[in-house]
Design a protein around this nucleic acid. Sequence first.
DNA 1: TCGGGCTTTATAAAATCTTTATACTCCCCA
DNA 2: TGGGGAGTATAAAGATTTTATAAAGCCCGA
Lengths: 227, 227
Amino acid sequence: MTNEGSILIIDDEVQIRRLLEITLSANGYNISEASTGKDGLLLAASLNPVLIILDLGLPDSDGLEILKKLREWYQKPVIILSVRNSEDDIVKALDYGANDYLTKPFRTGELLARIRVAIRQSQSIPDKPTLEFGSLIIDLANHTARKNNELIKLTTTEFSLLALLAKNEGRVLTHQYILKEVWGMGYIEQTQYLRVFIAQLRKKVEEDPAKPKLLNTESGIGYRFGS
Amino acid sequence: MTNEGSILIIDDEVQIRRLLEITLSANGYNISEASTGKDGLLLAASLNPVLIILDLGLPDSDGLEILKKLREWYQKPVIILSVRNSEDDIVKALDYGANDYLTKPFRTGELLARIRVAIRQSQSIPDKPTLEFGSLIIDLANHTARKNNELIKLTTTEFSLLALLAKNEGRVLTHQYILKEVWGMGYIEQTQYLRVFIAQLRKKVEEDPAKPKLLNTESGIGYRFGS
DNA sequence: TCGGGCTTTATAAAATCTTTATACTCCCCA
DNA sequence: TGGGGAGTATAAAGATTTTATAAAGCCCGA
């Protein structure tokens, strides 16, 4: 795969993409590009790049939302490149999981150095792309899950729910928290959604859906994955 | 142990140190300070801080040299804080092993966010606080309790009751107080509820429910956890 | 238009809480 | 010394809340 180890640029401005493409290529990186948040997410999932450069001012969606969605499964570095220079924007982006934040216009040498820092750090941290629980293997980067080595067909919502719970193995997550993370702020009261999807997941993931070992319910509170 | 997890500031300017000290302390970090590179290196070695904030413009030595020396053994994050704003300085510092680079004057909120990023990357999630009583472990944040490392199944009410008593280990809590805290103001007279739930808890938590060691009754007054 | 996936509804089942019933324990005093 | 009462323990029945699951309806993209 030629794009193994590439850097993904998500930015709507053509000239910025061109500049980055030239600069980064000249320094030995493979480049992939997306001009919208949606494309960016898709490309990120399919290419699994070593680093993502993300513009906050995308036309189709809020950059922070893209960042949050990315961070549900993408552990490698994300560097924000934005014209926004307010402290609030910077702090939010960093707290949402960005590794670094540069304001446009930026100095290419500095960007390159910060890319080196980010990649250097991500390599020292051992990659944990899959979560394993007995015969169940969840691959966060590829959005897939396997039981006894067979691929389980999961919808997007089912996968985020499973991934959220699995990433918090042993912890009790409240209904509200799960609904907020998977469906969004406006769905905090839709506990029934959660019940429906948990039931579906159990059918797909558990040996015996009637006696769940992975997706445990904490009556009156929420759900807990495992132990 | 008090300096375990502290942040070391190496900067010769008193007012910067004072500012950082106030800001960082207010955000729950322990602070250590050095005004020269030499002291900084010594302190770093003796304290092993979780993060170092390093000024490049030290009087006794070149900041980059300090960084280089630090990096011979120190793997945790180093954030550079400097008046120097040239691309060359920034690139060099980052390539010498700095994790981040901020130019003075800096915005404290941004610095704090970048500190969080650096610490987040350098350490995995710390375990949440738990209450431990021999073989019984109560995890308040997770709403779980374990006896001999096995999860005990507790209902919401049972858990709040156990948690309330455990948090007040050794103290006698009156019936009324417990009822008010767990059930609410309107239940102060329902002493029987309490008896029922204490009995249930003892069955689940005590080695010998007939001879309780944790959930002790103070006849005529209330209950006491432990000692 | 079709079909997959999400939302909504309906209902059965399970879990939990409340109430009742009965027995036990301790302590005081005749 | 042993009977009585206040306070306590516990099981179990009844009531209520919460959860599981199937299935119907809806919506959107191919």
